[in-house]
Amino acid sequence: MSGALLVEGLTVQYGGVKPLDEVSLTFESDVCGLIGPNGAGKTTFFNALSGFAAPASGSLTMAGTDLLAMNPAKRARWGLRRTFQQEQVIHTLSAWDNIRLSSEHTGGGRTAVERAVDFVGLEGLDRAGSALSMLERRLVEIAKTVCGEPRLILLDEPGAGLDAGETERLIGLIRRIPEEFGALVILVDHDMDLVSTVCGTTAVLDFGRVIAVGVTAEVLASAEVRRAYLGTVELEETA
C-alpha cells in the first residue's frame, strides 16, 4: 500500500473567505470518504491535494513526500490521480485514447492501459467519447485513475448521473482499487449509500472545518453530522 496521507493545518483562503480552515486529517488506507453539505470545502480540499488551489498554510505529506512541493502535473506523475465532478471524457478521442492519454503522461505504458481497461471491463474501445453512455464515461474516468502506479486517487462524485444498478457496478470497482492497485482512495459523494457501502472511514467537512471523522457508520449516525446535512429545524422536527 502507498501509506497514509497526512494533512496538517491545511488552510485555503480567498480574500476574507476560508473554504478550508485548519483542516487536519489522516487518511490511513483503502477507501476513505469525505462528505459534507454543499460549500463545505470538499472540492477545495481535492483541489488543494491535486495542486489547483494553493494553501495559505499547512502541509500535505504522503509516504514521506511533500505534495505541496510539486505542481499539478508532477503530482499526477508521482501517482496522484483525480476525477472531477464534471466528467472529463474527451468527445473527439476514442475510449482507448482517452485512457491512454492518462497513461502516457504518467509513465504507465500500454500494459497499464490494458490492465486498466481489463479492470473496469469496458468494451467497444474504438468508440468516440461522445458515443459513450454515462456509465461508460465513468468507467473511462476510473480506468484513467488506475493507469500506471497510482498512489492516491481522488474521486469527486463518481456516481453522479448513474442509476442504482450502475452505481452497484461502480461500488464493486471502487472497493477493489486498493487491493488491486495499492492506492489510497478518497471518495467525495452525496450518495450516502455509496459512501457507507464503500468507505471504511469517513471525514465530514462543514464550512471548511472538520466536524467529524471515524468509522463511516458511526460518523453518519452522529447528531452533529445530521445537523450539518439536514439543519437544526429538521432535526428538532424529527425528534
Binding site: 491535486s50 495542486g51 489547483f52 505542481n71 499539478p72 502535473a73 499526477a76 506523475r77 490521480r81 483525480r82 472531477f84 472529463q88 474527451i90 468527445h91 473527439t92 478521442l93 485514447d97 491512454r100 492519454l101 492518462s102 502516457e104 503522461h105 504518467t106 484513467k144
Partner: peptide, 24 residues
C-alpha cells in the same frame, strides 16, 4: 499521436489535462 491527444485534453479542460500529468 501523443501530442494530438494532449492537445485535445488541454482543449477539453486545462485542469483535466494537468491532472493527467500533461505539461500544458
Amino acid at each position: 499521436n501523443r501530442p494530438g491527444r494532449a492537445w485535445a485534453a488541454i482543449r477539453q479542460s486545462e485542469a483535466g489535462a494537468l491532472a493527467a500529468g500533461i505539461g500544458t
